[in-house]
């Protein structure tokens, strides 16, 4: 459900930008707008995390395991993709 809404929102933005449906002054500032929204979002996500007290206080044993999973899955994901992507491009 959210997924469809996100796709529609993104598409609306693209159409607004492409067809210049809003005043040029506003469209030209879309990157500044982007920064403001990004930082608002980070603040809100932070508040949400801060509210999960159990998670913040039990960051012992489970924490170490989770950090390892997060680190290795992120790194191998990036690395494996880069490796195969470059090989594919060369062929």
């Amino acid at each position: 459900m959210d997924l469809a809404l996100f796709a529609i929102t993104l598409l609306s933005g693209i159409i607004i930008g492409k067809r210049k449906l809003l005043p040029e002054r506003i469209i030209d500032k879309s990157d500044k707008l982007l920064n403001i929204v990004i930082y608002t979002l980070i603040l809100l996500i932070g508040i949400e995390i801060g509210n999960y007290r159990e998670v913040l206080t039990s960051l012992g044993n489970i924490g170490i395991k989770s950090v390892t999973i997060a680190l290795l899955s992120t790194i191998l994901s990036a690395h494996f993709t880069k490796m195969l992507y470059e090989r594919r491009k060369r062929n």
Partner: peptide, 18 residues
């Protein structure tokens, strides 16, 4: 957060569209 995400998507879309 959801509202901010939607605003974000409009802004990203506009930035890409132009």
């Amino acid at each position: 957060i959801k509202a901010a995400l939607f605003a974000l998507f409009i802004a990203i879309g506009m930035d890409m569209g132009k």
